[in-house]
Write a protein that binds this DNA or RNA. Structure first.
Lengths: 129, 129, 129, 129
DNA sequence: GTGGTCTAGACCACG
DNA sequence: GTGGTCTAGACCACA
């Protein structure tokens, strides 16, 4: 389990861990129903505090990406996640800001959509099933 | 100048101000070369400290969205912004995460692209000129 | 950590702090990967507000001289800094003005170059490695 | 009299005017004993306040670069300026900082000296007379 | 214990 | 009247 973390970033470590795990699930590095490393192992592996990893796992649980089972530890949830208005709205709100920035910084609509498509390809073909 | 702020959010207020202003520029509520309210006016209007607004303005200046002119105060920069690798990479990195989340939460590629297109329409037709 | 500050100067204190730290790094008083005093300690030591020191540290971070690590505080970056056109241009622009002034005030080219060489000697022999 | 000013810079306008005039004198665009434009004309030409130009001229006078004569207005002083410890120390102090930054940002001593020599060439050959 | 954020209020530099 | 700087003091997020 390799996470790409930047300790000099002003993005909190627990947020970075959350984001890296989401990407890992999306691109298949973490398979459905697979167990994540234990909080303790993960913390040791990447050299951060137990609390930090714990916070990330709890975030991911609250958002529905993983389940935390007393016996089996943290496991990736079956996908797609049950529809969830909160997640949906968060995504749309982020997308709104992102498109505004894209528009203002001169990246074309076409370039944006192309790049989006490339990312969807990377993450799977679920929408074509 | 109405900004949609959530004082209970854990997103810093100066970040929210920054984001709201970017959207306002993109959708034309703030016109090119138009002056933004002075730091003090804006602060009073939205009920925060002037330093908070000041921090937002300086962020926007550093990112190229506005200029701070000693004579005229803060004014919207002419667009599109000069190409800027930093902004570009930030956008692509955000998009990566966003698509991962979209993919996992069951929003389809089509829905995502449709929504993106709607946002681009909202923000202008620059790419069809 | 002794900084040479002039509270009566019209150069802002945070700028003076920035400059003193740059010199301290260059002449080895601050070693690579060494931690700088915490914002609060430094502020107390030199008798200014912690926000003033904070601003200096953030400037230095933005310019690449130091990193601010959530775990270890502010630490001197490994050198030389990654090539950076912005810094490069700033230096050349300052040098332009400086040579103009030197030329007009009667300091000879030779004296200027000698003094420069002495300063390079003081700051290390990196360029002879 | 063309001055290269940046109204979005955080360097005060009067400072920029001062610096541009120093460079203009050094490279011969302003000849010795030549009159500078009147405060009023200069202000109109570059679109700034009278006070701003006035402040620049007074600075230049205090530093010895120009003389201000009631009848003839501001005229470039004969060069080189009379030796002046204040100016000398200012230059050495700026040079110190500049070399520190150069050293840390990886520009080599050779490149620095080469560039300095080029600038001296641009500004004249006084030191070889 | 570290830096990050925010507030309140003051004075100054600039144009 | 504008933003820039600085102070004092508080609370929070993070690790």
């Amino acid at each position: 389990m390799i996470l790409n973390l930047d300790f000099n970033s002003d993005v909190p470590i627990y947020t970075q861990i959350r984001e890296e795990i989401i990407k890992a699930i999306a691109n298949g590095n973490l398979k459905l129903n697979e167990s994540l490393p234990s909080v303790r192992n993960m913390a040791e592996e990447i050299g951060v505090n137990l609390h930090t990893v714990n916070k990330s796992y709890n975030l991911l649980k609250d958002e529905g990406y993983i389940n935390i089972d007393r016996r089996k530890g943290a496991i990736v949830n079956t996908l797609p996640l049950p529809k969830n208005d909160l997640n949906d709205n968060k995504i749309k709100s982020m997308l709104d800001l992102l498109v505004a920035q894209t528009y203002l910084t001169g990246m074309s609509r076409e370039e944006f959509l192309d790049y989006s498509n490339k990312l969807f390809d990377k993450y799977g073909v679920k929408d074509y099933e």
